[in-house]
């Protein structure tokens, strides 16, 4: 029964259950067709939309949460970077420069979070709450509170184009996830992040620069949010400073927690967060397909979230096997 003690198994089980439900309830759910040199279908949509926001935000959020913190500002940082990229292309800048400016500013805002937390000593929830409010305000200020439409085919391609038949965001985000995971395990960064989140004092006494670790994860979270904001703007060829990323930080936190990374910090699972993000997106789409009104959709969503979190509790999991000792995946 070792498989039931892995952190990855429960979000996967929930995802499979949801997919089976969809296969029965909405015929054609798994129908995928090849048209104009790319794949189309509901499942492809789930991956595409899931990659663009929850998965991308969850990458950064996983590392932040692993250090025992939280980043509430990712939604607002999305709005800032989307606005900056849109205004840059409107000013005639090439796509790469526009995206670079958006990502650069987003990373900078993430690092500001890191400085407030690691150097000034603010609680992560406070520091990033400040940035959540200030970031949204900054996006409004930059755009004059107006939607910024743009017509730039290469920027739009980032969200709507395809590479080898797959949507660009899927390739981009899964690629980023794989590279991130590889770097974290090939260097000692993963170990340092887990050690810092599990016992910061002891980590510092063992010689780890815990301040630098925290600074880096908030910077990375800002970067991920920035990319997500650019993709959101590119998707509709417009940056809406009021709506891009609104409350999406909660989606990211859910994806991370559902994926088996504890809010108390320590051990983390990037793969778990990716599955958690897919679960969230599938759930959203399922509710939409079943004609659940958007206003009441959060209720069934909350039930599923609660169920997955309970499955992660060691006490509850103990009932599935005789051994209660949790083992790291």
């Amino acid at each position: 029964m070792k498989v039931f003690r892995s952190t990855l198994v429960w979000p996967l089980v929930a995802l499979v259950v949801l997919l089976v439900f969809n296969a029965v309830a909405s015929p054609g759910f798994f129908h995928v067709e090849w048209k104009d040199g790319r794949l189309f279908g509901t499942v492809v949509d789930i991956f595409n939309q899931g990659a663009r926001v929850p998965m991308l935000l969850a990458l950064g959020m996983t590392l932040v949460i692993a250090t025992g913190g939280v980043d509430l500002s990712v939604g607002s940082i999305m709005a800032v970077s989307g606005a900056v990229a849109a205004m840059q292309v409107n000013a005639g800048a090439p796509m790469v420069q526009a995206v670079g400016a958006g990502l650069g500013l987003a990373t900078l805002l993430g690092l500001v979070n890191g400085v407030l937390i690691a150097r000034v000593g603010l609680q992560p929830i406070i520091a990033t709450l400040v940035m959540m409010v200030a970031g949204r305000g900054l996006a409004m200020l930059l755009t004059g509170s107006q939607m910024v439409p743009f017509a730039n085919r290469s920027l739009t391609w980032l969200a709507n184009g395809s590479v080898g038949g797959l949507p660009v965001p899927v390739v981009l985000v899964l690629g980023l996830a794989v590279v991130t995971g590889w770097v974290l395990r090939r260097t000692a960064a993963g170990l340092f992040i887990e050690a810092t989140g599990d016992n910061e004092k002891a980590s510092r006494l063992a010689g780890i620069q815990t301040g630098g670790v925290r600074l880096a994860v908030y910077g990375f979270s800002g970067f991920c949010a920035g990319l997500s904001g650019v993709l959101e703007a590119a998707n509709i060829s417009a940056a809406d400073p009021a709506r891009i990323g609104d409350t999406r930080e909660l989606d990211a936190i859910f994806a991370v927690v559902a994926g088996g990374t504890a809010l108390t910090g320590g051990r983390f699972s990037l793969a778990g967060s990716v599955v958690g993000a897919l679960l969230l997106q599938t759930l959203t789409l399922t509710l939409y397909n079943q004609n659940v009104a958007p206003a009441v959709a959060p209720v069934p969503k909350a039930v599923v979230i609660l169920a997955v979190c309970l499955l992660h509790s060691p006490r509850l999991r103990a009932r599935f096997g005789k051994r209660t000792q949790p083992v790291a995946a």
Partner: peptide, 18 residues
């Protein structure tokens, strides 16, 4: 001292790695 949820191996190499 200890980083409780990390393994014995990780706890032993921690200072050397740092």
């Amino acid at each position: 001292g200890i980083i409780p949820s990390l393994s014995v191996r990780e706890n032993i190499v921690l200072a050397m790695q740092a």
